[in-house]
């Protein structure tokens, strides 16, 4: 049995213009010690789906799912009180902005000790010793003296390390990292990712990494979920995903990697993720897809062997009797850029 199993998760928000579906039938399965990545642009519902799992969404959110099991427990039916016993302890989450995610009024030590005390208890001495140990573990120099430091006295990278220390304090079995490096310098990014990978290996925790950086995915993940506009468009293991992307969106994301660019100009995906008011009919990606056909514009695609597309790609070319398969190749990207 997998550690976490989510089936058909949807999250809707009540807005002034009606319901907005931020997450649309997403599945996620992760085993003990596995490392999964959720990839997509901003607004593709990556964070929202994980916040729904944690129970951290505001009251305007409506969460539905066929199944949401963690370690045999049904997260859909448990009470708030029971959920609080799990989150922060067995499932924990680190966030994008380390500078604002720590409370400015409390010392770093207090904030770490607080979570241990809440879930595991212990005397003040034990808590302090554990906090020092954790700070050392995440690579903070002179951890004893850092206990009494306030978040504003440390750098963003250091704060993210504190955040990690806080969230692994109770030995979670699943750690969700929501773009943990986005707000940090490039050199620090690599260090933080290395730290997360290292902790994951040593402790055998499962790790879900939310990111929009394909480079990060390639370096860290085993399984990758690609999300677009709230929908899960492709799910593959990392090697296959990079070698043989099947969804045009994945394909376009990978083409946009500087390392893979062949022409003089870096290819990009024209347009933006649709919002509440400009949701297209048919496939949600069709306005930005270089392979879109009339069928794509009218009929929403069904899941084809873990790919949400009418014409899954093979070697960068659409299959399934795509009408334009002979005339359009992988060079169509630039041509489309001019159209939009």
């Amino acid at each position: 049995m997998s550690l976490l199993e989510i089936r058909n998760l949807s999250v809707e928000f009540e807005t002034a213009h009606g319901l907005f579906r931020a997450v649309d039938s997403v599945d996620l399965e992760i085993d003990q010690g596995e490392m999964a990545a959720i990839v997509g642009e901003s607004g593709s519902g990556k964070s929202v789906s994980m916040l729904a799992l944690m129970g951290l969404l505001p009251w305007t959110a409506r969460i539905t799912a066929d199944r949401m099991n963690f370690d045999g427990q049904d997260l859909l039916t448990i009470s708030q009180k029971e959920r609080r016993k799990i989150i922060g302890k067995d499932i924990s989450m680190i966030f994008q902005e380390p500078m604002t995610s720590l409370n400015p009024c409390f010392t770093v030590g207090y904030q770490i000790m607080e979570v241990i005390k809440e879930h595991l208890g212990g005397t003040k001495k034990e808590l302090e010793a554990r906090a020092v140990e954790l700070l050392g573990l995440v690579g903070i120099p002179a951890p004893e003296s850092r206990l009494r430091a306030f978040p504003h006295q440390m750098s963003g990278g250091m704060n993210q390390r504190v955040m990690i220390a806080m969230m692994i304090a109770c030995n979670p079995r699943l750690l969700i990292a929501d773009e943990p490096t986005t707000a940090l310098d490039v050199t620090i990014q690599a260090q933080i990712l290395e730290l997360l990978q290292d902790l994951q290996h040593k402790r055998g925790m499962a790790l879900v990494l939310i990111t929009h950086d394909m480079g990060v995915v390639a370096e860290t993940a085993e399984v990758v979920n690609v999300q677009y506009a709230g929908q899960q468009v492709e799910r593959q293991n990392v090697v296959d995903l990079f070698a043989r992307p099947q969804h045009p969106y994945t394909h376009a994301l990978l083409s946009a990697l500087p390392e893979r660019a062949t022409g003089k100009r870096l290819p990009s995906i024209p347009g933006v993720v649709p919002g509440l008011l400009d949701r297209p009919t048919g496939c949600l990606f069709n306005p930005r897809c270089q392979f879109a056909t009339d069928k794509c514009r009218s009929t929403p695609p069904a899941l084809h062997s873990k790919v949400l597309c009418h014409y899954p790609l093979v070697d960068g070319k659409p299959t399934n009797n795509h009408p334009g398969v002979s005339s359009q190749g992988s060079s169509g990207q630039e041509a489309l850029g001019g159209n939009v």
């Binding site: 944690m54 129970g55 951290l56 959920r83 609080r84 016993k85 799990i86 989150i87 922060g88 302890k89 924990s92 989450m93 966030f95 902005e97 604002t100 995610s101 720590l102 409370n103 400015p104 607080e114 979570v115 809440e118 879930h119 955040m163 806080m166 969230m167």
Partner: peptide
């Protein structure tokens, strides 16, 4: 609505805390 309040929730603290 601040991030650190979300962090406090993510720690599994009671609403009172």
């Amino acid at each position: 609505g601040e991030d650190y309040v979300r962090t406090a929730k993510a720690k599994g603290l009671s609403p009172f805390r």
